[in-house]
């Protein structure tokens, strides 16, 4: 009885590992490239956010005055620089790497301990506006 029970459990664990591997493989094979217009320094244009989307503009856009705006610089070579509001105001920058997940989701990872990886989904991207799903 115990032997049969152990066999079942072993089978479950095996299937579990196979499933994980299958999912990872599937994601990798579906990767495609981002449009080239996205590779620049984007700054949060929060005044234009909607209930479901964040709006970003190029960093040289004539933004209204603001206490601070987060942003990021995404580069074609895989580099990613996150600009986050610093605890004492101003901006902190964090260097990381990005990769595509699926057709529209960007995963960003950082080597530094002080910031965790995250992802965001792109709704649309043009020369002067980037729309990201909230």
């Amino acid at each position: 009885m115990m032997k049969r029970y152990s066999t079942y459990l072993l089978g479950i664990i095996l299937l579990y590992i196979i499933t994980l591997a299958f999912l990872f493989c599937t994601f990798k094979h579906e990767q495609i490239e981002l449009p080239t217009v996205i590779f620049k320094h984007w700054v949060h244009s929060y005044e234009h956010d909607t209930d479901t989307c964040y709006i970003y503009r190029p960093h040289d856009y004539p933004f209204p005055r603001s206490r601070g705006r987060r942003g990021f610089d995404i580069k074609e070579n895989g580099e990613f620089v996150l600009y986050r509001i610093a605890p004492n105001d101003g901006l902190n920058s964090f260097s990381g790497r990005w990769k595509l997940k699926g057709v529209d989701t960007v995963i960003v990872g950082f080597k530094a301990e002080e910031i965790n990886s995250f992802s965001f989904r792109i709704i649309s991207c043009e020369e002067d506006i980037l729309i990201i799903k909230k």
């Binding site: 605890p87 004492n88 990872g109 965790n116 990886s117 995250f118 992802s119 965001f120």
Partner: peptide, 14 residues
């Protein structure tokens, strides 16, 4: 869900 963050103290970033 790699976009989820673990609990962390804000000032620890500094």
């Amino acid at each position: 869900a790699q976009d989820k963050q673990h609990r962390k103290c804000g000032t620890m970033d500094v």
